[in-house]
Design a binder for these strands. Structure first.
Length: 273
DNA sequence: AGGGAAACCCGAACGC
DNA sequence: TGCGTTCGGGTTTCCC
């Protein structure tokens, strides 16, 4: 399992306080309860409940947007999608009305997967490499050099916005951070990847890192009612700022739709290449 | 290969 | 007050 800085998803899951993952370390699972069957992507519900029993938590990490909870026999992977959260409590009734799945430990602690919109999924799997197989490099850490990134961009004739959201190209960037990183790098979301100069590519990778690291530091973004712990929304330059002034040049922020995703940018400082 | 669209979800925020 | 509609997040799947 990769040892990497946490991204938004982990920051969100751990919002109850640093070390909440340490609170379940080495503990033994005694049972699992599942209210929303579809939240278990694999295996079958029956197998999930029987197989997870008696396993211990060895470590907690992350790959792309997956939280990786390594158990004695299997890996428990959690993808929060947009409204998911991981909470730890001692009473089921403290876990809120959107608790979809609960894992009980012998210590009396309960790990709850909450998800108002039922988009998130968990996997209990011996070898998670098949799930990780299609993922691109991590933008944080040393996984990706400036050379690698420039070369990868050169090979693609694709608009930057959908490319940044493509988890097989680069892992871990969501819609908010794609818009913010492109603005920070002064690149138009519709510019074509192989048109970027080396300097553009360097600036883009640097911007992705700055944006993600700052977002992690601020526990992610709270953009609606479903997650309240984040602070990064207070730093948005363009995301959901349609019609407001660009913090760099004062031009009005525009909103377009690219690949069915809302896309916010400043046409003055993000010129189309 | 790349792009577009639909499907999966549901509470909030709107319009009437 | 109460209906109906739209929205948006990430991913997969299908189709051009």
């Amino acid at each position: 399992m990769p040892e990497l800085p946490e991204v938004e998803t982990v920051a969100r899951s751990l919002e109850k306080g640093q070390g909440s993952e340490a609170g379940i370390l080495n503990q033994k699972i005694i049972k699992a309860e599942v209210d929303w069957a579809k939240s278990v992507a694999t295996p079958s519900l029956r197998l999930f409940k029987s197989r997870i029993k008696n396993q211990r938590v060895l470590r907690v990490g992350r790959r792309a947007k997956y939280i990786h909870i390594q158990l004695s026999e299997d890996a428990l992977l959690v993808h929060l999608r947009m409204s998911g959260d991981l909470l730890i409590g001692r009473q089921p009734e403290d876990l809120g009305k959107y608790s979809r799945l609960r894992i009980y430990f012998d210590s009396g602690q309960i790990l709850s997967f909450n998800d108002a919109r039922k988009f998130g999924r968990v996997w209990l799997i011996k070898d998670p490499s098949e799930i990780y197989a299609g993922l691109g490099p991590e933008p944080l850490g040393k996984d990706l050099s400036n050379d690698d990134f420039y070369l990868a961009l050169q090979k693609r004739k694709r608009q930057l916005k959908p490319l940044l959201l493509d988890q097989s190209f680069i892992a871990g960037i969501g819609n908010i951070y794609a818009d913010e990183a492109l603005h920070a790098a002064q690149l138009h979301p519709l510019s074509i990847a192989n048109q970027l100069t080396r300097a553009d590519a360097d600036r883009l990778l640097q911007s992705i890192r700055v944006v993600l690291e700052e977002a992690i530091r601020r526990n992610g973004s709270s953009i609606d009612w479903s997650y309240k712990g984040g602070e990064f929304q207070n730093q948005f330059a363009v995301y959901q700022k349609t019609g407001e002034e660009c913090p760099r040049c004062g031009e009005k922020i525009l909103r377009i739709v690219v690949g069915q995703r809302g896309t916010h940018f400043c046409k003055n400082c993000q010129a189309l290449l």
